[in-house]
Design a protein around this nucleic acid. Structure first.
Lengths: 331, 331
DNA sequence: TTGTAAGCGTTATCAC
DNA sequence: GTGATAACGCTTACAA
């Protein structure tokens, strides 16, 4: 900075004013400084700036699993919204490990981020509440509801109902739900499934599965063996649905004629023509954008009461669902 | 810090020594400070530390596209290696946009990162060379070779040869390559394909495609219509291969009996049972780890000559390839 | 419109 | 082992 000032024939303070494009600098000096800076390849030191300014204009985001494309899209939403408000975004990967996430929170706080955005966090309530007391914190797309902490979610119960209603409208009466094992989203989706089924006057069948392709296959194999394959299957997520499709194929059951299949998340997998999976879709980008808005309200409008936004998912209808063309398979 | 010092009954300097766990602090004072810090929820300000210490112990990584699972795995490798050496990792998303990447480089430099790791960068040579003059810079998994800049790649030509050799060993003689359009990786893979084919005494057929599923489908539709479907297809990437599988299915050609299919990248898609795609695999994690080692050599052992590591891919054999069971389809 | 000087939260040097 | 004190690179009243 010193060097730039000398080269431009001004004081260090003036350089600072120019770098923060203050209006009270004469055009001539401004260009002189800018030229000198460019010539010297000068870049302001953000640490020094943060220290002096006592703010960072930065959000810290922690993404539960960088491998999960679902989260990636939420991040895109966050980035574009943050950008629009002049905030930068620092991403730390939680690696699906609560401990690593805890360290990531600490790192972010040490970086003096102005808010924490936790995408699909696995942190326990205690850690969450603690974080939210230190800095504005919002949880996006994590299944759990935390009392005093801001959250942005898409309603799993509504999502499940969308799937059921779609299948019922097509004429299905025998529908099985493959659940996602032991997590909050799974419980919500299974609960929504049961509710929607009963509301339609139908008996819900829920099968324990898990969150991987293999889990679906085990559950499905059982159905096939018992000859209790329903006319429609609603899976906890797209990956499970992929496993279902696979087993149906080996069992020589056609989709959607013999069995209709609905997934959840509407990921990339669902879109593959090979799959053409009807799936529940969560407004991922929007969720990211709302997360930014939520923390911004705390930072700039100093809101203090917690916000809990619960969006509605939608249904992306594709080739894996259709009217039932056969009776239920039973012994 | 002041407050912590008071509470522990010591000077500020002592607190600093404890926070950096210096050996020359008495155990009693150390625990006193630690307790005070915990009680007050004190976290050191990284900006102040960086400023005083004149180093950040941080790598800046720019990921070309956060949605691409291929890159995510490289990042995992980087993270674990960096962790092992006491470095933190800051991730910025390039968003497949050279301009955004350029800004990301600037942001990282302003953060005084000690090295830049560019994963699958789209930056032009000029920008790369400039960056590498300011700070140690390494490019991972980008197709291009940049003279003076450190690179970690997996050899596309060898990958293509692996695919060809596998198919030839199975008995295929009529093999078509669907290329990835206009990018360096694509050119290398196509070149490697042609070389390997000629080495096997076979005539290479290369079809222009692109990098999306739809591109594969257009190219394949043509083959089907002309009745010039080969006994094996080697696609530029897994996504193209997925498109190929799809078209083959509609054309009622069985895989691998009528046609064998090989993909590239060995992503998640290839692993789906529904796909069971034989695919060329790049050592993604390893590439990330080597990237860290490469910059570390510059930082700590002040290496100055450029490094260009070119790893060998491997082949993951799955159900989509087998011996040809029919003759070539021709008019 | 420009320059001076104090201060941001740490670390590091150097006496004690 | 411990405690002053001067950096680190920048911003920002305030004065000129």
């Amino acid at each position: 900075m010193e060097t730039v000032a000398e080269r431009a024939g001004v004081s260090r303070a003036l350089v600072s004013l120019v770098m923060n494009n203050s209006p009270k600098v004469s055009d001539s000096k401004r260009t002189a400084v800018l030229e000198a800076a460019a010539a010297l390849g000068y870049l302001p030191n953000l640490h020094a700036r943060s220290l002096a300014q006592q703010r960072t204009k930065t959000f810290g985001i922690i993404i539960n699993d960088i491998h999960n494309p679902f989260f990636a899209e939420v991040v895109s939403g966050i980035e574009s919204a943050a950008d629009g408000h002049g905030f930068s975004v620092l991403i730390l990967n939680g690696g699906r490990d609560p401990d690593r996430e805890r360290r990531a929170v600490e790192t972010h706080l040490q970086f003096q981020v102005e808010a924490l955005i936790l995408v699909g966090t696995r942190l326990d309530d205690g850690a969450l509440v603690r974080a939210s007391q230190v800095t504005p914190t919002v949880i996006v797309a994590s299944g759990s509801d935390h009392p005093g902490v801001d959250t942005i979610t898409a309603n799993d119960r509504i999502g499940a109902a969308l799937a059921v209603d779609h299948l019922v409208a097509l004429g299905h009466t025998d529908i099985v739900h493959l659940d996602g094992g032991d997590n909050i989203s799974s419980r919500h989706r299974a609960g929504g499934f049961e509710l929607a089924m009963r509301a339609a006057g139908l008996e819900p069948r829920v099968l324990r599965a898990g969150d991987g392709e293999a889990d679906a296959e085990a559950a499905m194999a059982q159905l096939v063996e018992d000859e209790t394959v329903p006319t429609a299957i609603f899976a906890f997520n797209d990956l499970l649905a992929a496993g279902v499709l696979d087993i149906l194929k080996s069992a020589e059951l056609s989709v959607p004629n013999d069995v209709s299949v609905v997934g959840y998340d509407n990921t990339f997998i669902a879109e593959l023509n090979h799959m053409s999976l009807t799936a529940v879709d969560q407004p991922r980008r929007m969720m990211g954008e709302l997360a930014v808005r939520t923390v911004l309200e705390r930072i700039e409008d100093n809101r203090t009461e917690p916000t809990n936004l619960d969006l509605s998912p939608t249904l992306a209808v594709r080739g894996s669902t259709g009217p039932p063309k056969r009776d239920r398979i039973t012994r």
